[in-house]
Structure formats: C-alpha cells, structure tokens
Write a protein that binds this DNA or RNA. Structure first.
Lengths: 233, 233
DNA sequence: ATTTTTACTTATCGATCGATAAATAACATT
DNA sequence: AATGTTATTTATCGATCGATAAGTAAAAAT
C-alpha cells in the first residue's frame, strides 16, 4: 500500500520517521481523549489502539504511558462525555416557577438535544449500553432525579394536582416515554442516518404539546388511584 | 481451566474427541443460526466463530461449510429475526375500523412489544444500527409504512379530521415519538437492565392514553397549517 | 459388499490485537 | 556545558481472529 521498505513497520503500525515533538502531559492526555472519542464514536470500542495512535501521529505504545490499559482510556472517554458535559442549569431551568411549564420543557429539550445529538454522544452511549458497563444505568438514574422528577412535579403543579409528594413510578414512567421519544429521534437521525423531514425544534414542540395536552387526565387518574390505594390500605 | 493435555487443542478451540454425529444440512443450518442469534445477542458481532462452534459442539471450520463467511452468517441472523418475525396481522389489526382506535393501538403495542422486547431482537437490532448496515433503515421504513401511516390515518379519522390524503411528515413524526417512547422502555429494561417498577401493559396504556388525548389539537393545528400552506402556495 | 458422496475434523496460515521491555532523544536542572 | 529526567520510539511477545487445505469417517448409492 505504501512504499515503506521495512515490513515490521507495517506490522507494528508505525507511521514513518518520527516527528518527535515533545508535549506537555496534560495536553497529550486531553488530545488523546479527544481523538479517542472521535474514533470510538465511529468504530466502537473494538477500535484498535494502533488506529488511534496513527490518527494522533504517535506510536501505539505511547498511549500506555498515559493510560494503564485501554479500559482506562475508555473510562476517561465516559468521564469527558457524560460527566463533564452535564449542565446543572437544566435542572434549575426546569424548576424556575416564573415561566410556564410548556416553555420550560421546550427550552430544556432544545438545549439538551443540542448537547447530546452528536455522533460522539449518542453512539458511544449506545456502545456503552451494549457493553454492559454501568455508565448507562448511572446516567439514566441522574436523568431521572435531575430532570424527570423535577419535570413531573412542575407539571403536576401546573395542573393543580397533588402537593409535594414524590412522583410515583407510574408518573415518572410517563415522562420517560416523552424522554425516550425525543431521544429516539436522535437515534434515527444520527445512528440510523434517516432523512429527517421534520426539524428538531418542530419535533420537540409537537411532541411536548401532545404530551402536555394529554398528560393532565392521566395524571389525574393516577392521583385518584393513589389516594384510593392509600385509603384501602 | 480444563485438563486437556494438548496445547494446540486449546489454541484451535477444539472441544475434545469429536462426537461425529452426522446431521441433515437444513437442520444444521437452522441450528447454527439459532445459536448464532443467541451468541450475537450476548456479545455482539465481534463474537468469535470459535466460541460459536464450541457452543454448538462442533469444530470451527464446519461453520464455513454452511456460511461462506461470517458476514453471511450475520445476514442469515438478520433475515431470521427481522424478516421472519414480522407479523402482517399488525397492519391489519390497526386498520380494523370496527374497533375503537385506542383499543387497536394498545392491542398492537402489546403484541409488538411481546415480539421485540427480547435480548435477541433489541440488542442485535442496536448492534446492527451501530455497524451501519442498512437493516435498521429498511426496518424503520417498514415500520413507517406498515404501522405508523396506518395509525396516523386511523387516528386522524377518529378525530374527524382530514380525508384520505397521505400523512404529512410532521404527522408521521408525531407518531414516531410514541413509537420511540415505547421502544425506549424496552431498551431500558433489556439493554440497560433497569429495574422497571411499571409493567409493560400499564406503561403502554398510560403512554397511549396521554398521546391520544393530546394528539387531537396538534393534528388539528397541523391540518390547518397544511390547508393554509396550500392556499397561499 | 463395495464404491461414492459429503459431513466433519485436524492442522495451519496470515493478520491483528493489547501490552511490555528496552533504547533514544527532547527538554529541564544545575 | 554537563547531567538528569522523561516523553517518545523501536522491537517484540502471546493471544486471538477469520479463513483455507487436506485428511477422515459416516451415510447414501450402486
């Protein structure tokens, strides 16, 4: 493929005559993680360390100076994407009583999808889920406590239902359906690469409007069931 | 791990002293695909052919007598799961005007989730999506034409809206949100292995009730926009 | 009973993977 | 300018992967 004379250079994945510029460890670390995110998003975690090294213009064993093992590199990738990119403003915005609930939810989903609807975020999230790492379980737990429960309480209030009791599982599950529906839009767009004839803001508006219009009666029914269960218990 | 003396037996993945029972080719073919589905659902497509052979109690090269390459085996897996398990009754049931729309949709999703909410179906579907094969694009296209468009038309009718014009992209997208929300319930249950405090039928009922209650006004708005667009065009 | 067919195994190749040890050269310290 | 530190490369190991060629034995055909 290339005209390199040494066959061992091909075998070891050496790029050719080393550049040998020396960088600060912190910069390298960040650079490695950044490119690893890029590569893993494309190929998945079975992407070779040699491929990564080549994209970095660096030899493969150098990676092991910064990450004891490939799994540690992967852990750093998780940290960067799913921890560092989380915005605490999401929760705050959703709990801001001064704005109407519809506006809050739409604003949240527009910003949230803007953050997570990238190949890096979505594909790596799904790769991780299939791998069985607990990243997804932990992330979804965060979504539930930081996003869905606040939304549930705020929505309940805006319908003049119930007080401050914690949301019931059925209530939370209801809002998971909205979350999942919107998330799956991103999966179709980014993973399956569907042509998406409806743009994101429109999709979000329609989904939220449908949901908020319909959720009132169901929440009411759940609240009634709840009080009945309590009285018969 | 095992007490086998020969190291080459370990290396080649030989199981031990061959059983040498001779089977009919068609039976073998089916057996291979069945076990391949099981294995791929667990590990993904990077599962080794040796691992598969071992689970079948057969040597690895025998696989290549039935499938020219690993990719052909994978193709057979797709065919079995996503083509052979599709039920034409789904479309028919959804278009059965004699039953109320809510009942039809709930019945469909109960049967549909019963079919696809298995580790085999969901995990392999997601593995395929990340691989970039067109399985998912083709499957989703089928879902859209065979399921979502009929649902859209039936729902529209039940609200006394519009005639037989084909559903607009925005309308279809709306029903994709419901589909995605329910699908994502399965992903959380089966892939992320969340504890699911709300059972499937209840989730489906709540989701469909919320959706059907709220979708009326939005469909109406979309229909009005449509006619306005047509008149100004 | 002998021959023919073919399902199945043994053995092995070449590529690629994650990881380690040792050599080298760029930068910091004095 | 000499020395020390460490970022980076070279070389290589052992395991595992998909795939192929050649041998073996079970069933079918005669």
């Amino acid at each position: 493929m290339d005209g390199s004379s040494s066959p061992s250079a091909e075998a070891t994945g050496t790029v050719r005559a080393a550049r040998r510029t020396r960088n600060k460890p912190e910069d390298r670390h960040r650079e490695f993680v950044r490119k690893a995110i890029e590569l893993f998003a494309e190929v998945g975690f079975e992407a070779g360390t040699r491929e990564l090294a080549q994209r970095l213009g660096v030899t493969q064993p150098l990676l092991y100076r910064y990450f004891p093992s490939k799994d540690d590199l992967i852990a750093a990738v998780y940290q960067e994407i799913y921890v560092n990119r989380w915005k605490s403003e999401w929760r705050e915005g959703l709990m801001d009583d001064s704005r109407p609930i519809r506006e809050r939810i739409i604003a949240f989903y527009e910003d949230y999808t803007h953050t997570i609807f990238t190949p890096e975020w979505i594909r790596i999230y799904i790769f991780a889920g299939l791998r069985g790492v607990d990243i997804n379980r932990r992330y979804a737990a965060t979504v539930e406590t930081e996003i869905l429960r606040p939304i549930t309480l705020a929505t309940r209030q805006s319908f003049g239902l119930g007080g401050a009791e914690p949301p019931s599982p059925q209530e939370v599950e209801l809002f998971w359906t909205l979350q999942g529906g919107i998330f799956y839009y991103g999966v179709r767009e980014i993973v399956y690469q569907f042509p998406m004839p409806v743009d994101r803001p429109t999709m979000i508006r329609n989904a939220v409007d449908t949901f908020l219009t319909g959720v009132g009666p169901v929440l009411k029914r759940l609240a009634d069931q709840e009080t009945k269960d309590n009285s018969t218990r």
